[in-house]
Design a binder for these strands. Structure first.
Lengths: 127, 127
DNA sequence: CAGGATCCTAAACGATACTG
DNA sequence: CAGTATCGTTTAGGATCCTG
């Protein structure tokens, strides 16, 4: 198929574009990790917290709520005591998560190349 | 086709993993937009600033330096007066930028779906 | 023109304590 | 267990002024 030579990018560069907020939620510090983690399957809150190293309760909760509001994450609460809540990806969430995962994958796969590049440069200007 | 049932993700979930910093630079608020913009070609500082709506001089400068340190952006300064500096992607930068672009593309392409989902949910809890 | 230096505000983040 | 509330700290981010 013929690829379009000039893909017309929409409103992403515009200050008020709603894409930016969604992009922020998805690419936020913890958003990325949560999406990638949920790609593996369903997690409970505490398990997810253990899985994603370094995240606080507050931030995990906040991140999950943002992703849920965007329709990427499904929150399923079982009415038992003690509470049992499960988080998983919606079909739409799975799609974004795959994109994010692909990016994360690239970075992990090229970390060595990147770090080499980085050291080569920082050697020139030793603060 | 036999797909691997369990892709082993590396250290991304570990608190101290260097991938996280790179990921942050690439997925930062302005990092994303700069990478996508540079995918179109070379830009001068001011042009890039105009292109990326809403970015301040300071943040653009900071973002470019981070991406340059990671080896994603090439800074070319022509020794003339007034100064003429051009920014472009390195081969490695082009690779990440494509990943980021793909993600941004997905979001823009699905914005309508996302926004519908969002409104459906926020209607349930008014405030 | 390209950006560094400075100052200041707002937001993100984390730790702890507490509740249904 | 799964969070919310509160508080204090840190970082991001923006506005302005200044220089090579």
């Amino acid at each position: 198929m013929a690829m379009s030579p000039k893909k017309q990018r929409g409103e992403l560069f515009s200050v008020a574009c709603p894409s930016r907020q969604v992009l922020q939620n998805v690419t936020s510090r913890w958003g990325v990790l949560v999406l990638v983690a949920l790609l593996e399957g369903t997690y409970r809150f505490s398990d997810l917290r253990r899985k994603v190293g370094g995240v606080s309760e507050k931030m995990l909760s906040q991140t999950l709520q943002a992703l849920e509001a965007d329709g990427f994450v499904l929150r399923t609460a079982h009415p038992v005591v003690p509470p049992h809540v499960e988080y998983s990806l919606t079909p739409m969430g799975t799609e974004v998560a795959r994109e994010v995962d692909s990016l994360a994958d690239w970075i992990e796969g090229n970390l060595y190349r990147i770090m080499k590049q980085r050291n080569a440069r920082s050697a020139a200007s030793a603060h």
